[in-house]
Amino acid sequence: MATQVAKRTDRNLDKKDYCLVPPVDIYETDNEYVLKADMPGVPKENIEITFNNNELEINGKIDEAYTSSDNLTYREFTLCNYNRKFLVSDKINVEGITATLENGVLTVTLPKREEAKPKKIEIKAE
């Protein structure tokens, strides 16, 4: 929760821009890569995940209700749109990418292609 990431510069103050970089965890299993990103304040329908030229891009449009500063008397956080890109290897089965959102945490599963999965090598008896 801490590395609640992003560079806040004056040019980022326009809420329409993407200015938050969500912190992520990525782990690898035999069959897939799993990416978890903290994106509080983004409804499911506002998340856009694109895969293009080995580049995985995650965009999250913040719910407008959380960006308004009307009646704000004390501030510790500012939310705005999220954006992050990852360069991914060719070994991903692009059609198989799935994503879920729960309590503001986005989970993207990137399955490996069959040929990239670990294979057990049989040792032939002589």
Binding site: P40, N71, E102
Partner: peptide, 24 residues
């Protein structure tokens, strides 16, 4: 500031407190 990060909004007789709590 310490976690959880909060914002406080006040209007007339109402107070709204928002806290960031992803994954909770």
């Amino acid at each position: 500031v310490e976690f959880p990060y909060i914002n406080v909004y006040e209007k007339d007789d109402d107070i709204v407190i928002r806290a960031i709590a992803p994954g909770v």
